[in-house]
Each structure stands twice: as structure tokens, then as C-alpha cells.
Amino acid sequence: MAKFELTLPENTRRFLHDAGELSRFAARFFAEGFSPRYEVLEFVRQCFVVGYKSLPLAGLTAFIMGLVLTMQLHPTMVYYGVEAMIPAMVGISIVREIGPILTALIFAGKIGSSIGAELGSMKVTEQIDAMEVSGTNPFKYLVVTRTLAATLMLPILVIIADAISLYGSYLGINIYENVSFYLFFKQIFDHLLFMDVVPAVIKTFFFGFAVGIIGCYKGYYSSKGTEGVGRSANSAVVVSSVMIFILDLLAVQITDLL
């Protein structure tokens, strides 16, 4: 009997293989993450590290983004005589899209790469094996704590970044005209609906999870040698950035249905 074989191009096969392995890895996260023993101390430490490491950069870019966006919108809005709408427009774009995406990408660059490199070098220098023989489940101690920390810290970072960004926009508008702080934010909150804010925050949990789990996966299965570590860090950033955009695309489809 003739055997039926599906032949796929090598890179397609590798992609599918990788996707399958990554899903298995994520499933293991749920299986191991919610059974004792809980690594609470390491989790809290990771939350601090993850948040602290990315806050300055995320804050700075958010500030500049808010400022620049406002300054670039201003002439056009004045031309159409709707400069009063600037706060509402900037508010919605920042809260719904720019804040989450920009912060998540910065987060992927900063945290995804550092998790990938850290776990990768722990893998190749046998530190993960050493944990295993020291009465520690390295998956719980390293992967679960870091992924959870990334999942919980990114939404918080995004909210802070949104606020900083809106403040940047407030300064931007004051370059041209005098708008009071109260009026500016009243304008924003009059137009910002509950349905703008909630989905935008919810999707950032998924972004954070993607960055954490992909960074861990790439590090945990890093190939031998220092070159392997570099490759892990690099592909952690690339894959999680692409993943963020894919999730964002899904999120906009879902919120459109609501």
C-alpha cells in the first residue's frame, strides 16, 4: 500500500514544529503554575525586576509619543477648526492602541530578550540542571514566576504609560494654546468610554503572557554555546513582537463584535 506523505517546505515544517512545541510549553505553564509548591518569593522578586527594568524606557517613549502625536495633529485640526477635539482624539488613540502596543513592544525588547538570554545561559551552563538536583522544580521556579510576572506587570505598565502619554499630550497642546489641566482631562474622559478602556487593558494581559512565555520557551530550549544564547534572546524579541501584533489584530476583531 502506498504511504501518503505530506511534504512541506523545510521552514514551514520548522515553523509548525515550533508552534506545536510552544503550545505544549504554554500548556505546561498552566499545569504546573497552579499546583504547589508556589514560588511566591521569586515571583514577587520577578515582578519588581520586570516592572522596574522597563518602566523608565516605557515611560519616556510614552511621554514623547503623546507630545509628538499632539503636535503633529495640531495644524490639521486647526485647519478644519476642530482643535477642541484634540484631547478626545489623542486620548482614544493612546488608550486604545498606542499605549498598549508601544509599551508591549518596548516590553518585548527589554524583558523578552533578558528572559531569553538569562534562561538560555542558565541552560547552557547547566544551572537549570543544578536547580533540579537541589530540590527545585526549575520550570516552576524560573518559567512560571517570570511568565506570571510579565502577565501581571505589563497591564500596570500600560496604565502608567497611558497616563504619562496623556500628560505629554497636555504639554504638547499647551505649546500652542492655553488649556487648563482640568479641561484637558475632562475632554478626554467625556469621550473615553468604558468599552474603550476595558478591552484595551484586557489585551495587555495577553501581550504580557506572550512576551513571558516566548522568552522562557526560547531560553529554556536554547541550543548549546554562547551563540545559542544570543539566538534565543534575539528570536524571543522577534517572535513575541510579531505575536503582539497578531494578538492585537485578534483583539480588534473581538471588540468589534461586542
Binding site: E118, M122, D129, A130, V133, G135
Partner: peptide, 17 residues
């Protein structure tokens, strides 16, 4: 068992952090 069996790793496996 692992308490009673020590393992010296080829690459030392000291925790960098």
C-alpha cells in the same frame, strides 16, 4: 536520593545572579 548524591557539574553551574 539527590540529597545524598552530590553532583559536580562540568561547567560548574554556579548561579550567576
Amino acid at each position: 536520593i539527590r540529597v545524598k548524591v552530590g553532583f559536580l557539574f562540568q561547567s560548574n553551574a554556579l548561579y550567576d545572579s
